[in-house]
Computed example of a mutant assay.
Amino acid sequence: MTEQDAAAPNRFGVRPGEDSADLEYINSVGLGALANSMGIELSEFTRERVVATMPVEGNTQPYGLVNGGAYAVLGETLGSMHAGFLAPEGKLPVGVDINATHTGSSSSGTITAVCTPIHAGRSMTVHEIVCTDDNGRRCSTLRITNFYKSIPTK
């Protein structure tokens, strides 16, 4: 590895020693096909937390409320990305559990999700994701567990 390679940013646009991701870079390369089609956009990405928004429009069930699966996609996207950001060198996160409790919903506007690590260890992470509507009312609380797996060598 050359000195230039060592200073190159990782998949989150982070260079060694930095504590936050390059939001412009991540939003430009996308969060994955599903998250992109749902309109999920990051607004903050640090070691302490990830914040993103998702429009209600296009993510509803037949009754016009946000689909519970949309909350799950939002939570899994943020929790898995943050687990990857915190991953030990040579490891990548693999989701092994996700659960959600929906305590409210929204039929218009934007959902804001705040993802924070509950446990960030050497072999696994646990994140909590709190989703709120435009009025700050909690709509869903999710928890995701990721196991760290060694990156296969070629």
Rank of each mutant, 00 (worst) to 15 (best):
T145Q: 08
T2F: 10
S150C: 07
P117G: 07
A87C: 06
G90E: 03
R143K: 12
R49L: 05
A70K: 06
A6Q: 14
G13R: 04
L42I: 05
Y63E: 14
A35N: 00
A52I: 00
N10Y: 02
D19C: 09
E3T: 14
S107K: 12
G17C: 09
Y71D: 00
M54K: 01
A8Y: 10
D5K: 15
S37G: 08
D133A: 00
G90I: 03
A33M: 13
I40V: 11
L42W: 04
I111T: 01
T141M: 11
P9E: 06
T103P: 02
G104K: 02
L86E: 04
I40Q: 02
P9Y: 09
G39Q: 03
F12M: 02
R47M: 12
Y25C: 06
G136H: 07
M38D: 04
L42P: 05
L31G: 00
T125V: 06
I26P: 00
V126Y: 05
P88A: 09
E18V: 12
G90H: 04
A35H: 00
A52G: 07
V14I: 13
E3M: 14
A33V: 14
A113L: 02
F147Q: 15
I26D: 02
T153L: 12
R15H: 12
S37A: 13
C131E: 08
Y25M: 11
N67W: 13
H82M: 09
R122G: 13
F12G: 03
T153K: 14
G121M: 05
A21N: 01
I98Q: 08
E89Y: 11
E24P: 08
T110N: 07
G64P: 03
A70L: 03
K91D: 10
L23V: 05
E57C: 10
R137M: 11
D134W: 09
R11S: 14
A83Q: 02
G121F: 04
L42A: 02
L92Q: 13
D5R: 15
Y148E: 01
C131R: 00
T141R: 12
N10W: 05
Q61W: 09
L74Q: 05
V114L: 06
P117I: 07
A35E: 00
A120E: 06
E57M: 13
R49S: 07
G39N: 00
T141N: 10
T153N: 11
S150M: 10
T60E: 01
V130Y: 03
V94Q: 10
I144G: 14
N135Q: 13
F85D: 00
G104A: 04
H102M: 01
V50F: 09
T116W: 01
N10C: 03
N67T: 10
P62N: 06
E89R: 13
A8E: 13
E3P: 12
G58T: 09
K149V: 07
A52C: 04
T141K: 12
E57G: 14
T46R: 00
M54V: 05
G64N: 08
I26S: 01
G58D: 08
